[in-house]
């Protein structure tokens, strides 16, 4: 079991959490960031990586994924420890400090916790008929393209992830089938065109309705709307790219004062638990506006107040970033 001990733990690696990681580093604090998704970026990466965002201060237009990449780069000099693909499950008081445990068995001990959980943990929409093959043939992500090599791949979904993975699979897998429950894809026109020109077998108006195989997965049953009976498709790797769902999840049981599933904070971003702060879409107060732009300000407030909470002698004001050396003074070794 891994344990990390840091000054500040940030729960949620969306834009606001990433900016909080930068700010903690800038304040000379060691920082860890935990997120249920296997990548940084939260809702932005999961739902609209390719959409332009027009209301980030100083950026007339920025693609979601580019914003996330910029935030990761901005925090990088301070070496935040990322604990990704693990959901923060419990928050327990340890004297003056806090301990968070994750679904992956990691223990995180911190002097302050900043919760930037957005609308909650982002998790892939499940494919219940094949759930018994999870990690034995069923996957919700393609973390590395070499997992496709030589497999009979079936990809379910009609968005950009599904098409990108299908196009990659055609180059590497033995067979590739794309199953989508509608006629229209929700992906880039260019990807759709590449798909049509590829050797990928495409089943539209279709759903995977059963999965079979003795040890691992070997075959799925696909039901096409209007057809007589299902089709059997050889399948050793089933990738369900059906989008995401978000739920506040375990945070709701951490003893925080909530209002309509958001965490109530004061003007210093403090929650009702001492040393626990919240910022971004998950926090609320009178007059709250849920925007990334607002979240950036809130998390700067949260982290600076956390810094003052940890080191009362250094005070609340961070000083000017333009005066500071960017080099991390307290970088954590892995």
């Amino acid at each position: 079991m891994t344990t990390h001990d840091v000054d500040v733990l940030i729960v949620g690696a969306g834009p606001v959490g990433l900016y909080g990681a930068y700010y903690a580093g800038f304040r000379g604090l060691t920082v860890a960031v935990v997120d249920a998704l296997p990548t940084q970026g939260g809702q932005v990466s999961a739902l609209y990586p390719e959409k332009n965002i027009f209301d980030i201060a100083g950026m007339p237009a920025v693609k979601g994924q580019d914003l996330v990449a910029g935030l990761v780069e901005q925090a990088a000099p301070f070496c935040p420890r990322y604990v990704l693909g693990e959901q923060a499950e419990t928050l327990v008081r340890l004297g003056e400090r806090w301990q968070v445990t994750t679904s992956g068995g990691t223990t995180l001990v911190a002097s302050a916790v900043v919760i930037t959980g957005g609308v909650g943990a982002v998790s892939p929409r499940p494919l219940p008929c094949a759930e018994q093959y999870l990690d034995r043939g069923l996957q919700y992500f393609v973390p590395r393209l070499d997992v496709l090599d030589g497999q009979d791949v079936v990809i379910v979904g009609g968005g950009d992830s599904a098409l990108d993975w299908a196009l990659a699979s055609v180059e590497r897998a033995r067979t590739t089938t794309l199953v989508h429950r509608r006629q229209q894809f929700r992906a880039h026109a260019h990807s759709v065109k590449l798909l049509e020109q590829s050797t990928c077998r495409t089943l539209l108006d279709a759903q995977v309705t059963a999965a079979a195989g003795d040890d691992g997965l070997s075959c799925v049953e696909v039901t096409v709307k209007g057809d007589f009976g299902p089709v059997a498709v050889p399948c050793t790797l089933l990738v369900a790219a059906l989008g995401f769902t978000m739920q506040i999840g375990p945070i709701a049981d951490w003893g925080l004062q909530l209002q309509d599933r958001s965490i109530l904070v004061d003007s210093a971003a403090r929650t009702n638990l001492p040393g626990v702060f919240a910022a971004g879409d998950i926090s609320t107060y009178d007059g709250k506006v849920k925007l990334i732009a607002v979240g950036f300000g809130e998390v700067a407030t949260a982290v600076n107040n956390a810094a003052a909470h940890l080191q009362p002698e250094v005070g609340l004001a961070p000083g000017h970033s333009s005066d500071a050396a960017i080099a991390p003074s307290r970088a954590v070794s892995a």
Partner: peptide, 9 residues
């Protein structure tokens, strides 16, 4: 949350 996933479907 204004993600827009519903509109095209």
């Amino acid at each position: 949350i204004d993600c827009g996933a519903c509109e095209p479907v």
